[in-house]
Amino acid sequence: MSNFDIVPPAAIAAGDATDAYFDRTVETLEHAGKNPTVVAEVTASQFPSDDWYLFAGLKDAVQLFEGRDVTVDAIPEGRLFDGGPVMRITGPYLEFCRLETSLLGFLSHATGMATAALEARTAAPDSVVLSFGSRHVHPSLGAMLERCALLAGLDGISNVAAGDVIGAEAGGTMPHALVISFGRGNQEAAWQAFDEAVDDDVPRVALCDTYDDEIEEALRAAAAVPDLESVRIDTTGSRRGDFEHILRELRWKLDRRGHEDVGIFASGGIDPAAMRELRDIVEGFGVGSYISNADPLDFALDIAEVDGDLAAKRGKLDGKKEVYRTPTGEHEIRPADEDGDGKALFERVVEDGEIVASFDTEVAAERARTDAASVGFSATAESDGPGGNRR
Rank of each mutant, 00 (worst) to 15 (best):
T115K: 15
D302K: 12
F182Y: 07
G319M: 00
S127E: 03
V26I: 03
V205R: 09
D318V: 09
H245Y: 13
K59F: 11
V205D: 09
I166C: 13
D23R: 05
M113V: 05
G329E: 15
A120Y: 12
I233T: 06
G171Y: 07
Y21P: 02
R367Q: 11
E338G: 15
S230A: 09
A218L: 05
P226I: 09
V129Q: 02
I180H: 04
G385I: 08
G185T: 02
A32M: 12
I264K: 06
V38G: 11
E260N: 13
V225C: 04
I333L: 02
E119K: 11
S108L: 04
E146A: 11
E330G: 15
V282K: 02
A365S: 14
E216R: 05
W52F: 15
A116K: 04
I12R: 11
L94A: 08
E260W: 14
E330T: 15
V42R: 13
E366S: 12
E347A: 15
V128F: 13
A116C: 08
I246Y: 00
A32I: 12
R121K: 12
V202R: 12
C148N: 07
R251L: 07
K321S: 05
A17V: 04
S158W: 01
R279G: 09
F359C: 03
L80R: 00
R348A: 12
D337C: 09
E322C: 03
A218C: 08
D60N: 07
G342A: 10
T235C: 03
C208S: 13
A44N: 10
D19A: 08
G288C: 11
R390E: 09
D371Y: 09
F182T: 01
A206F: 01
D69V: 00
A300V: 01
D164I: 05
P272C: 12
R367N: 10
T25W: 08
G67A: 00
D339C: 11
L310Y: 14
L118V: 03
I333V: 07
G57S: 03
P226K: 08
L29Y: 10
H245A: 13
E30V: 10
G83L: 00
G185C: 02
H109F: 08
G78D: 04
T43Q: 04
A14L: 04
L107V: 06
V282C: 02
H259S: 07
D199A: 15
R135T: 00
E229L: 00
E229R: 00
N3L: 06
R334W: 01
A20K: 02
R325V: 04
F81C: 07
R232M: 06
G319D: 01
P139Y: 14
R314T: 07
N389Y: 10
H136F: 10
V165Q: 07
G376F: 14
V349R: 08
G388L: 09
